[in-house]
Design a binder for these strands. Structure first.
Lengths: 102, 102
DNA sequence: ACTATATTTCGGTCGTTGCCTAAATAGCGA
DNA sequence: TCGCTATTTAGGCAACGACCGAAATATAGT
């Protein structure tokens, strides 16, 4: 779970996930979308793969990356569980929350 | 949005949010739950407050922290939008995803 | 005004992350 | 096998984040 949030913490990695959400792409194609060196992107791929958010498949000389939907959903579910917010929750209908201090 | 994910990236901060989800607590009370120095926790509070995830209210010499549900929901909504996963989504009913590479 | 309590701000250390260039690896076609 | 393309690994450096102890600030009570 911690790896998941860690992976999601970097804007470039989130953008990569958003791109892969549309379609599978090669490392090179993804890299072209950013103004960063290829090795830097490769490092980001590594973090995402380690977290399980993406998978790689070799196709010729290229590596095709795809998003792993089940893990992505796990991330969302984990965050919802942590904050205990309902899915389609409207502007917070004030679920029961113990007074605590006040 | 980036501040939100950044704030959620640290396990201690996530735990703080989970605690505050139950009830509002003073800085000291929260600090007691961790084996960390007070200044360290104070730094975490600062990050969470900056992200809008918590708010502080002074009560005597103490500072009472509360979670900000609407921002918490915004975080969940943001993650769902990024990954485009449905809320109660079962084990991924394979939404349409362009073939892209194959 | 002084003291005690609660919390933050300050200054510094240390490990990690993000980025780069250069070099290594992997696959493919001639 | 050689050469070409695609991508990763290695090495190094600057910036950042997390942590601590000490000092500063804020509030309340005496």
């Amino acid at each position: 779970m911690s790896d998941l949030f860690q992976a999601l913490a970097h804007p470039v990695r989130r953008e990569i996930l958003a791109m892969l959400r549309d379609r599978a792409m090669s490392a090179g194609d993804i890299a072209e979308a950013f103004d960063l060196a290829k090795p830097t992107l490769s490092g980001h791929f590594s973090v995402l793969k380690e977290a399980g958010l993406i998978t790689a498949e070799r196709r010729g000389a290229s590596l095709i990356y795809r998003i792993n939907l089940s893990v992505a959903e796990e991330a969302v579910a984990g965050l919802m569980a942590l904050l205990r917010v309902a899915p389609g929750a409207a502007p917070s209908r004030r679920r029961k929350q113990a007074g605590g201090v006040r």
